[in-house]
Design a protein around this nucleic acid. Structure first.
Length: 352
DNA sequence: AATCCGGGGGA
DNA sequence: TCCCCAGGATT
């Protein structure tokens, strides 16, 4: 058996029962593919089920507001995916008459759809012969062929994409693509792959040369930025002051609290005497409580957040247009990053 | 080409 | 801790 036959044979016997494999509807496949980007199947599946149930057609998805999409996306991360989906759904309604594209060349033009996702949707929905190259495929091919070209360079991406397209069984592109990813995910795992049970072990170059743990090669240049977030809890008449975040930073268009970011850790008592703080809340502010510092890790940032509950503040000076008061019911409808909704879970428990 | 964009889980 | 996950957009 050749490579394609081996992995397809393996796939038939070992595939998982995933909900989005039961359809050829390009809209539903799109939903699943975007949700699964950089996301484990176990983490993304509940989100897929909720989205597919609430928005069974692209028309219903397009009729939702961005706020609604982000709220349903809450907790999954990489929120630009949700914002891009919202744009794409509306464009599909307007320029594709509500028919979600099935061919690669149309798909690749859509916001949030790159080479991987266009290949996945086109092959799964219409069997177009485009090989998918995701993290699983990079790993499997680099090991099987013993290729140490870094996978996160232009050269590496082209090399592995060309290779995958040569291996592709064009008569059943969709099944081949499912198979190669599933194989990489379950059999050729990143750590401690079970080579003894692997049907490709005899021909695997990494196994022959004992380089399983060194492949694939990836250039790492991750510099983490440390940031200090001082969040203000300001309540009035049972409502709480909320901030809608803007563009150009993390969590775009999502909701958090009035934020005073400092370059270094700062004490609440110093913060409330700062010029900027006073210009917002006045000079007579008292501190009711200060939370223990909370660490929150993002892919490129390490946030140190503290939550400062204030009283006796004046909001005559509230110059920030993005701040507004909401009650409990409204708050629960707002899309919040995990750091924030996790804080509120504890905060409400304390206040009830 | 390099950097940014979340959050979770395994070792 | 470090690495990786059904990646893509921006600079």
């Amino acid at each position: 058996m050749n490579f394609a036959e081996e992995i397809i044979e393996w796939y038939q016997r070992n595939k998982r029962d995933l909900p989005w494999r039961k359809t050829e509807d390009p809209y539903i496949i799109w939903l699943s593919e975007i949700i699964m980007q950089q996301t484990r199947v176990e983490q993304g599946t509940p989100y897929f089920n909720r989205f597919a149930e609430k928005y069974p057609t692209v028309e219903l998805f397009a009729s939702a507001s961005e706020d609604e999409i982000l709220k349903l996306w809450q907790g999954l991360g990489y929120y630009s995916r949700g914002r891009n989906m919202h744009q794409t759904a509306q464009l599909v309604m307007e320029e594709h008459a509500g028919y979600f594209p099935k061919n690669y060349d149309s798909l690749i033009k859509l916001k949030g759809i790159g080479e991987y996702t266009a290949a996945a949707i086109s092959s799964f929905s219409s069997n177009e012969a485009r090989a998918v190259v995701d993290g699983n495929v990079f790993r499997l091919l680099s090991r099987y062929f013993g290729i140490d070209t870094p996978i996160n360079t232009g050269k590496g991406k082209k090399l592995f994409t060309d290779l995958a397209n040569e291996l592709l069984d064009k008569s059943q592109a969709g099944k081949f693509n499912q198979a190669i990813m599933e194989f990489g995910s379950l059999q050729c795992k990143p750590k401690n792959p079970d080579c003894l049970s692997c049907p490709l072990q005899a021909a695997c170059e990494a196994r022959k040369t004992n380089r399983i743990n060194e492949l694939p090669v990836k250039i790492k240049s991750l510099k983490i930025r440390e940031r200090y977030f001082n969040y203000i809890i300001a309540q009035k008449d049972g409502q709480i002051l909320i901030n809608k975040r803007g563009a150009g930073d993390i969590w775009e268009n999502m909701f958090d609290l009035p934020l005073f970011e400092t370059e270094f850790p700062s004490h609440a008592h110093d913060l409330i005497r700062s010029e900027k703080f006073i210009s917002c809340f006045g000079e007579k502010v008292k501190i009711r409580s200060v939370s223990a510092p909370v660490k929150h890790i993002l892919s490129h940032q390490k946030l140190h957040a503290s939550f400062i509950e204030i009283e006796s503040f004046s909001d005559r000076f509230l110059s920030e247009r993005s701040w507004f008061y909401v009650g409990q019911d409204e708050l629960e409808k707002l899309a919040q990053p995990k750091l924030i909704f996790h804080f509120f879970e504890n905060f409400h428990k304390l206040n009830t």
